[in-house]
C-alpha cells in the first residue's frame, strides 16, 4: 500500500495540471462558500419600504454551517473529477499504464493506486471544507462553543464519502472512455442532467429505484439545506440508508474500473 502511494506520489508531485486543477477547486470552494457574507448584508426594498431582510439568515451559524458548506462545495467536485479523468487519460494515452503493467504492476495494484489518489483528493477537499467552516464560523458565527460546533459533523463525513465515491466513479469513466474530453463531457452531463432527467421522466423523482441511481445516491447524502415550503423538513442528519447505498456504489465503481481495465488491450 505504501509502495503504491509512493508511486502515485512521484507521478503527481511534478504534475502541474494536477495541482492547477486542485488550486482551481480550492479557490472555487472558497469563493462559493463566501457567498453567505454577501447574503448577510443583503436587503431588498421596494419603494423605500423594506421587504426582505436577510441579515438574520447567517449560514455560518453552527451547527448548520457544516450542512450549508458541504452542500455548496459539493457542486464543485467536478473539478476534482476532471483531475482524476485527465490523470487516467494521460496514463492511457502516453501508454505509461501499459508500461506499468509490463514492468510488473498488477492490474489490481494499478486500480488501488488510483483509488489511493482519489482518497487523497477527497481528504484534501474534506480538510479544506473543515478549515473554511472553522474560518467563517470563527468570523461570523454567534456561538463557537465546542458542543455546538461538534454537532452535525456527520455532514463532513458524508462530504468525504460523496467526494471519494464521485472520484472513483470518474476513475471508471476515465478507463471506459478513451478520450479525456469525451470522458469529462460525459461525466458533467451525466452528473448534472442525464440522471436528473431520467429520474423525472421514468421514475417520477421518487422511490427506491430513483434513490439507488449513482448520482442521486450522492446527492441524497447531503440534501438542500433550506426549507422551500412549510411542509418539508430540512435534513438534520445523514441517513444510514443513504450512506449504505453510497458505499455500495463505491465498491461497485471500483469493481467496474477493474473490469474495464481487464477487458482493455493496452
Amino acid at each position: 500500500m505504501l509502495r503504491l502511494f509512493q508511486i502515485e506520489w512521484i507521478k503527481v508531485k511534478s504534475n502541474r495540471s494536477f495541482w492547477a486543477l486542485l488550486l482551481l477547486y480550492i479557490l472555487g470552494v472558497y469563493v462559493l462558500c463566501s457567498i453567505g457574507t454577501g447574503l448577510m448584508n443583503m436587503t431588498s426594498s421596494v419603494n423605500g419600504q423594506q421587504t426582505m431582510d436577510l441579515s438574520t439568515m447567517n449560514m455560518y451559524n453552527f451547527p448548520n454551517t457544516w450542512h450549508n458548506l458541504t452542500y455548496i462545495a459539493s457542486y464543485l467536485k467536478i473539478f476534482l473529477s476532471i483531475t482524476m479523468i485527465v490523470g487516467i487519460s494521460n496514463e492511457v494515452q502516453h501508454k505509461t499504464l501499459r508500461q506499468n503493467i509490463i514492468d510488473g504492476m498488477s492490474k489490481v495494484e494499478f486500480i488501488i493506486s488510483k483509488v489511493i489518489n482519489a482518497f487523497f483528493l477527497a481528504t484534501i477537499a474534506t480538510l479544506f471544507i473543515v478549515a473554511i467552516g472553522v474560518y467563517f464560523g470563527n468570523t461570523y458565527a454567534d456561538n463557537m462553543a465546542w458542543e455546538v460546533v461538534s454537532q452535525r459533523l456527520d455532514f463532513v463525513g458524508a462530504f468525504f464519502l460523496q467526494t471519494f465515491t464521485f472520484l472513483v466513479f470518474s476513475l471508471f469513466i476515465g478507463l471506459l472512455v478513451k478520450s479525456s474530453g469525451l470522458a469529462i463531457v460525459f461525466t458533467i452531463a451525466y452528473s448534472f442532467f442525464i440522471e436528473t432527467f431520467f429520474t423525472w421522466i421514468f421514475l417520477d423523482s421518487d422511490g427506491i429505484l430513483a434513490a439507488a441511481l449513482p448520482m442521486n445516491a450522492l446527492d441524497n447524502l447531503i440534501q438542500f439545506p433550506v426549507s422551500l415550503s412549510p411542509t418539508t423538513e430540512v435534513q438534520n442528519t445523514v441517513g444510514l440508508k443513504e450512506i449504505l447505498i453510497c458505499f455500495i456504489w463505491l465498491v461497485v465503481d471500483i469493481g467496474l474500473s477493474y473490469l474495464a481495465l481487464c477487458k482493455k488491450d493496452l
Partner: peptide, 14 residues
C-alpha cells in the same frame, strides 16, 4: 523481464 513495447513510454513531464 525488462521490456519495451513499440516505443519508449514514460511520463513526459518527469
Amino acid at each position: 523481464v525488462g521490456a519495451i513495447l513499440e516505443k519508449p513510454c514514460f511520463y513526459p513531464y518527469l
